[in-house]
Design a protein around this nucleic acid. Structure first.
Lengths: 156, 156
DNA sequence: ACATGAAAGTTTAAGCTTGAAATAATTTGC
DNA sequence: GCAAATTATTTCAAGCTTAAACTTTCATGT
């Protein structure tokens, strides 16, 4: 016997559907709150914060394609967000000698300073918003989601 | 002693930050896949699917404000999505005798039929995409997220 | 060298999303 | 009854997002 009976398959998929809906609602709830606070306290947006967070980890900078694949968004999307960050003086596009198609996107000093302030607040907000999740559950959930991710990456 | 020492607070918030980042990445990954499949197989979008899913549960229909609070999106957002669904003949805005500010948004028969087809596929997709999460973990995760939600609703 | 194809980014059109302002209808307090 | 406040929704401007088309640059094979 290779597969479970149909009724069990259906029951499983209903359980997973429930899980997905709850995860989606939790994400949206938290995202909405973060967006609101970033706007109120730092006059910026979540996508800009995400780009800056990605760049902050890597002082030498990132390619546009690196940003879009890291952030799981489209190429054209990143173009627009980086354009705005450049015009605000928070990041730069540095031409490269080797490949003239690409440029390294880096935080400016101002961008780095602003991100550090935002990141500290952001970490506190998450601690607050997820405060209801116990320590043990936090670890367990994080572990499960990590396994989801590695499981996912073993496809396409 | 009322609060934990600072080092413990900081450690907790780092754990929760990690959890949040993983949850966000999982959501985005799944959402991207669903969006792609809805487009390919049904020539529609995730927001439209969400609105139709909300309406499907309630044959008597919903108010615009009901939709926006259920879907956790802004009022003006729903206006646009419903406009497009109306122009596609999938939902209707029925005037009400009582309150002329509001109208009941309902699925048409065509909308109901189309949603049923999409919902069946959607459930299968979720079952597939979350297939790597074991049954026990699925239940546990869903329970944790439910408690997050009820915990959340006990604020603002 | 040169054509062909691949790779990196940008642009574009359409749609999604938000927050704020505007509109319209209802309710409340005199 | 009527002004004022509230409620439900739409409109608007700005920004986000995607998929597809396009441009430029690089790599490859001959």
């Amino acid at each position: 016997m290779v597969s479970a009976p149909l009724s069990a398959i259906s029951k499983d998929s209903k359980e997973r559907l429930r899980l997905w809906i709850r995860m989606l609602r939790a994400s949206r709830t938290i995202e909405a709150e973060l967006r609101e606070r970033l706007r109120r306290e730092f006059d910026t947006t979540l996508p800009r914060f995400d780009v800056m967070a990605a760049l902050y980890r890597v002082p030498e900078g990132m390619l546009m394609s690196g940003l879009s694949s890291f952030l799981l968004v489209s190429n054209g999307n990143v173009t627009g967000i980086v354009d705005r960050l450049v015009s605000e003086g928070l990041v730069t596009r540095a031409r490269r000698n080797g490949d003239r198609r690409t440029s390294m996107v880096k935080l400016t000093d101002a961008g780095r300073a602003q991100f550090e302030a935002m990141a500290a607040a952001h970490e506190g907000w998450i601690g607050e918003l997820l405060g209801g999740v116990g320590e043990e559950d936090t670890r367990r959930l994080a572990t499960m989601l990590k396994s989801f991710r590695s499981n996912w990456e073993g496809r396409e």
